[in-house]
Amino acid sequence: MGNGEKRQLNGWYRRCYTYLAILCGAAALLAIFWQGHMALAQNAVLYWGSSGPEVKKVQARLNGWGYYHGPIDGYYSGKTQEAVKDFQRNNGINPDGVVGSGTWLALGYSSGGQSASYVPQDGGSSRGITNRDSSYLLARVIEGEAADEPYVGKVAVGAVILNRTQSASFPGSLAGVIYQAHAFESVSNGHYTRPVTEEALRAAQEAMSGWDPTGGALYFWNPSKSVSPWIWSRNITGQIGRHVFGY
């Protein structure tokens, strides 16, 4: 083997290692970033230029409380920023127009995994007998399955879950129905642990009190998502928001 050849080979190895190192480094960085991203996915910090369902959540809340009058479109525009500033001023938060953890909290959402609107009570005269646990569990699945649906659609999802507990073909308890394998996508993939909004809690309560916008449905599905063809063999009762309901 000639010297020149050797050098060439060495050079080749060197390049190879460098590429590998860069590749590994990139992979490691990606992994770290991905994990970090997953952890931050809950109620990120929002500012001018942000977009997405989180922004929609803020806009809807500010609209409900009379701070924001623009469209609830998920785009953090100047108008949204002004509304946030107004809200912050009224709530003793530094009016910087950025929705951080303090502002999220004031809006009734927590930035962590827990909801601000749920405070466990210690037993008074009831000594622990309450239906708060059930309505909170139901609200979490409603939030997971129908966060972007209209209010009636949220109550409808709650009603389907409760209809299942009354059906012979499904487990007889609320937890049995919710945690049945493959029953609800948001439970299977863990998204139902998102913080619960006041609206979801209200929907859960009204569903538990008997409101059933679905006419006794046992299934709901989003036709724009891929669903098993079997589901279309159900008797369809109607559509609310983006969900089709059937039994």
């Binding site: 012979a168 073909s169 499904f170 487990p171 007889g172 049995g176 049945q180 394998a181 493959h182 029953a183 299934y219 098993s228 079997w230 589901i231």
Partner: peptide, 26 residues
């Protein structure tokens, strides 16, 4: 009742075991 609860724990796809489930409930 116990049998129905256990069946609900087995990860079968949607609608595969509804008939058996119903039998146990009834």
């Amino acid at each position: 009742d116990a049998a129905q609860k256990e069946l609900g724990q087995i990860p079968v796809p949607d609608g595969l075991m509804t008939r058996t489930m119903k039998y146990l409930t009834q």
